[in-house]
């Protein structure tokens, strides 16, 4: 049940967070902490890569919703990279696929976030 969050700056105020393992009530607070640390530094365009996530529960979803709200409040956005069918299904059955922009790759996510920039 290994869980890991790695993050990097992709330029233009965009951060990529790569999540690996099971995101639940025990581990999701680490994802929240990582997202907040980028938002606190003024990086409010965030892509969360869920490709290596093997389990995602309502706590993990709650953390992502919280991140989306906070980034949009700051004029940014949070998008998901989710080529994983199992995880995509969780967003579909909860209706959250209508709220999040879900992209197939990190490159697509960066392109999407750059396209959303003002000016």
């Amino acid at each position: 049940m290994r869980f890991d969050v790695r993050s990097r700056e992709a330029g233009d105020g965009i951060a990529i967070l790569s999540v690996q393992g099971e995101a639940d009530a025990f581990t999701a607070p680490r994802l929240k902490q990582e997202m907040l640390s980028w938002l606190d530094r003024g990086v409010n365009r965030i892509a969360v890569n869920l490709e290596q996530v093997t389990y995602l529960d309502s706590t993990g979803l709650g953390v992502l919703i919280g991140g989306l709200k906070r980034s949009r409040e700051r004029g940014g956005d949070l998008v998901l990279v989710c080529p994983n069918d199992r995880i995509t299904r969780i967003f579909e059955i909860t209706g959250l696929s209508r709220i999040f922009d879900m992209l197939a790759s990190e490159e697509d996510a960066i392109k999407h976030l750059r396209g959303g920039q003002d000016g």
């Binding site: 706590t59 709650g62 919280g66 969780i90 059955i93």
Partner: peptide
């Protein structure tokens, strides 16, 4: 309640159980 997260977490939890 959804713990420390927004209330959606608790509502989603109930919804997921119903569906699954």
């Amino acid at each position: 309640s959804g713990g420390s997260e927004p209330p959606e977490g608790g509502e989603i939890s109930a919804l997921l159980m119903e569906i699954l």
